[in-house]
Design a protein around this nucleic acid. Structure first.
Lengths: 212, 212
DNA sequence: GTCTATACCGTGATAGAC
DNA sequence: GTCTATCACGGTATAGAC
């Protein structure tokens, strides 16, 4: 690769000069996920990770078995967060349309609140075992949401004639796309995320058109 | 990488046995884009491309200067197709809301009709010069669509209070997500694409909710 | 337009001292 | 928990014959 870094990935830029940072699996993971999200998983070398973490390549192997374990840890975390939403009361009780709306809203918030891991998950392509496992679980999630959409159409709250599978795909295509541009805005980020979720939910359920 | 191929990428599987396929830049490009889209650009080696094309690595350099040129050719093609939409009469004449709807619909069709190149474009991360140039042009496209959304709100056809930039991002997040699951269905694909574009446009402008 | 052969470097990973 | 040193391998790319 002829790569010139997009924006000089030095997550631990501050400590870059010092070297010899002390790391746990946790701190290493958060550094790695940042770099993966800038460079892409395949585009990231152990050397890149080492530089960003402020240690040497070899030191990384003291914490994890290799690059793929870092990926697995990250996407597992993302998926656990998403599946947890489906077990919340708001996703299990009431009319299907309301449950669907709840899941859409909560998924937005979860994506924003867990942005690095979810972003990485959404970019996984299936080249390694860890990636394929993640894709399987994602498919699972999609199916459960499509079932929710189907129920909402049956109950008459969503327009008849909608294709539930397609509808679920389009909704979550929109939700997931947030990861491509959203950057947390420091304080007020929570309110910001709520407004984003509101805007998206309104668009999906009521559309853009003015009915005045 | 511990990679086991996801689905044995042999675009030219038929000719795999024979070897010594004859290639032009064009035929090589179409093979390369297929492989890039399965393996990811960074995850694809020249060896992968050579196998899929049925020639050796060295032969590829007879046609192009290297991997990055194949990427540049592909994303340029994708971007040219998208920008051409903005110059069509339907995108330039009439009320802004109608022009926006036209662009959304046409973008869906263009994405489906030019799927491999557009898919690759949407996955580009900015690691190389070719990728950064592509990202710049994408941003340009987004701005022009956001301006269209702003005009449509001003004219009163879209709900007041919408954020034009956010609206444009969400719409095209949904449109672009089609590339993650859509696979052309042989004959009838044109009708299929039209229905997909209709469904998406209806969702965006009128929402899912049943108003009966 | 393809091939074989090869240069050269970056890669993921390991061994073992401190 | 970090380091230096080292390894085998696979990566892009080139030279030159057919």
């Amino acid at each position: 690769m002829v790569s010139t870094p997009p924006a000089a990935v030095s997550a631990a830029a501050a400590s870059a000069a010092g070297r010899r940072d002390s790391h746990s699996v946790e701190s290493l993971l958060s550094v790695a996920v940042e770099v993966f999200n800038v460079r892409g998983y395949d585009g990231t070398s152990m050397e890149d990770l080492a530089k960003a973490a402020g240690i040497t390549k070899s030191s990384i192997y003291h914490h994890v078995s290799g690059k793929e374990e870092l990926l697995r840890l990250s996407v597992t975390r993302a998926l656990d967060g998403l599946f947890a939403i489906l077990d919340e009361p708001g996703a299990r009780e009431g009319r299907a349309a309301d449950r669907l709306e709840y899941v859409v809203r909560r998924t937005c918030l979860e994506l924003v609140g867990n942005l690095p891991h979810v972003t990485l998950l959404l970019r996984v392509r299936g080249n390694t075992a860890a990636e394929r496992d993640a894709l399987d679980r994602r498919r699972d999630f999609d199916h459960r949401v499509a079932a929710l959409a189907a129920a909402a159409i049956d109950e008459g709250d969503l327009r008849a004639g909608l294709d539930p599978r397609l509808t679920a795909r389009l909704i979550f295509g929109m939700v997931n796309s947030i990861s491509e541009w959203y950057r947390p805005g420091g304080r007020g980020a929570e309110k910001e995320a709520g407004e984003l979720a509101d805007a998206l939910t309104a668009l999906v359920f009521d559309g853009l058109r003015n009915r005045a």
